[in-house]
Amino acid sequence: VFVDDHLLEKVLELNAKGEKRLIKTWSRRSTIVPEMVGHTIAVYNGKQHVPVYITENMVGHKLGEFAP
């Protein structure tokens, strides 16, 4: 499973602090992992960042699938 390192670091850091804030990313190719559930990730679609709230059903899919 591929997840960009910088994105995973941000998610794990927020989980350690117990925070839930918006994470901006250009990494549409990253796979959604269970650690991301409950976070809102702003995924770049080529024009703007689209906020995507991550749920359990999204695990295993790519971030780009949810930012048309």
Rank of each mutant, 00 (worst) to 15 (best):
V1G: 15
V1D: 15
V1M: 09
F2I: 06
F2T: 05
F2H: 10
F2K: 05
V3E: 05
V3R: 01
V3K: 02
V3S: 02
V3C: 08
D4T: 02
D4K: 01
D4S: 05
D5R: 15
D5W: 15
D5S: 15
D5V: 15
D5F: 15
H6R: 13
H6G: 10
L7N: 01
L7D: 01
L7R: 00
L7K: 00
L7I: 04
L8V: 04
L8I: 08
L8E: 02
L8D: 01
L8H: 03
E9F: 13
E9R: 14
E9T: 14
E9G: 12
E9W: 11
E9S: 15
K10L: 15
K10N: 10
K10E: 15
K10T: 15
K10F: 09
K10W: 08
K10G: 05
V11C: 05
V11Q: 00
V11H: 00
L12K: 13
L12P: 01
L12D: 04
L12C: 10
L12R: 14
E13Q: 11
E13Y: 08
L14R: 02
L14W: 03
L14Y: 07
L14K: 01
L14T: 02
L14I: 03
L14F: 06
N15Y: 02
N15T: 04
N15I: 05
N15R: 03
A16P: 01
A16T: 09
A16W: 06
A16K: 12
K17R: 12
K17C: 11
K17N: 09
K17S: 11
G18W: 03
G18F: 05
G18H: 07
G18Y: 04
G18E: 06
G18T: 04
G18K: 08
E19G: 04
E19R: 07
E19Y: 07
E19K: 08
E19A: 08
E19N: 06
E19S: 07
E19M: 10
K20R: 11
K20H: 10
R21H: 12
R21F: 10
R21A: 14
R21E: 14
L22R: 06
L22K: 06
L22W: 10
L22H: 05
I23R: 01
I23E: 01
I23L: 09
I23Y: 01
I23Q: 01
I23V: 09
K24A: 07
K24M: 13
K24F: 15
K24P: 07
K24N: 07
T25Q: 01
T25D: 01
T25W: 03
T25C: 04
T25K: 01
W26L: 08
W26R: 09
W26S: 08
S27M: 06
S27K: 04
S27P: 01
S27Y: 06
S27Q: 04
S27I: 07
S27A: 07
R28S: 05
R28E: 02
R28F: 05
R28W: 07
R28H: 05
R28M: 04
R29F: 14
R29P: 06
R29T: 10
R29E: 09
R29H: 12
S30W: 02
S30P: 02
S30Q: 02
S30G: 02
T31R: 08
T31D: 08
I32V: 12
I32H: 00
I32G: 00
I32D: 00
I32T: 04
V33C: 10
V33N: 04
V33M: 09
V33F: 05
V33Q: 05
P34A: 12
P34L: 11
P34E: 11
P34N: 12
P34Q: 12
P34C: 14
P34D: 11
E35S: 10
E35R: 04
E35I: 14
E35C: 14
E35F: 09
E35K: 05
E35A: 14
E35P: 14
E35M: 12
M36P: 00
M36I: 02
M36A: 02
M36K: 00
M36C: 03
M36L: 05
M36W: 01
V37G: 04
V37M: 14
V37Y: 10
V37H: 06
V37F: 14
V37T: 12
G38I: 00
G38W: 08
G38T: 08
H39C: 03
H39D: 00
H39K: 02
H39A: 02
H39N: 02
H39R: 01
H39F: 09
T40F: 07
T40N: 09
T40Q: 09
T40G: 05
T40V: 10
T40S: 09
I41T: 01
I41M: 06
I41K: 00
A42G: 14
A42H: 05
A42Q: 04
A42P: 00
A42L: 06
A42N: 04
V43K: 00
V43N: 00
V43S: 02
V43W: 02
Y44Q: 03
Y44F: 12
N45H: 08
N45S: 08
N45R: 09
N45T: 09
G46E: 06
G46L: 11
G46I: 05
K47H: 13
K47N: 10
Q48S: 13
Q48F: 13
Q48H: 12
Q48A: 12
Q48L: 11
Q48Y: 13
Q48I: 11
H49F: 13
H49C: 06
H49P: 04
H49V: 03
V50A: 09
V50K: 12
V50R: 09
V50H: 11
V50E: 11
V50N: 12
V50Q: 11
P51V: 13
P51S: 10
P51E: 13
P51G: 07
P51N: 13
P51C: 10
V52I: 14
V52F: 07
Y53E: 11
I54L: 10
I54H: 00
I54T: 03
I54C: 13
I54G: 00
I54E: 00
T55C: 14
T55M: 14
T55W: 13
T55Q: 14
T55H: 14
T55E: 14
E56Q: 11
E56R: 14
E56L: 13
E56K: 10
E56S: 14
E56I: 12
N57Q: 12
N57F: 11
N57G: 11
N57M: 13
N57E: 14
N57Y: 12
M58K: 12
M58Y: 11
M58N: 07
M58G: 02
M58Q: 08
M58R: 10
M58I: 13
V59P: 08
V59E: 07
V59T: 12
V59H: 03
V59R: 08
G60F: 15
G60K: 07
G60E: 07
G60C: 15
H61C: 14
H61W: 12
H61E: 09
H61F: 15
H61A: 11
K62T: 12
K62E: 13
K62C: 13
K62V: 11
K62I: 11
L63W: 00
L63F: 07
L63C: 02
G64R: 12
G64S: 07
G64K: 09
G64C: 13
G64M: 10
G64A: 10
G64I: 06
E65N: 09
E65Y: 12
E65K: 14
F66N: 03
F66A: 05
F66R: 02
F66L: 08
F66V: 06
A67R: 03
A67C: 07
A67I: 06
A67G: 08
P68M: 11
P68N: 07
P68V: 10
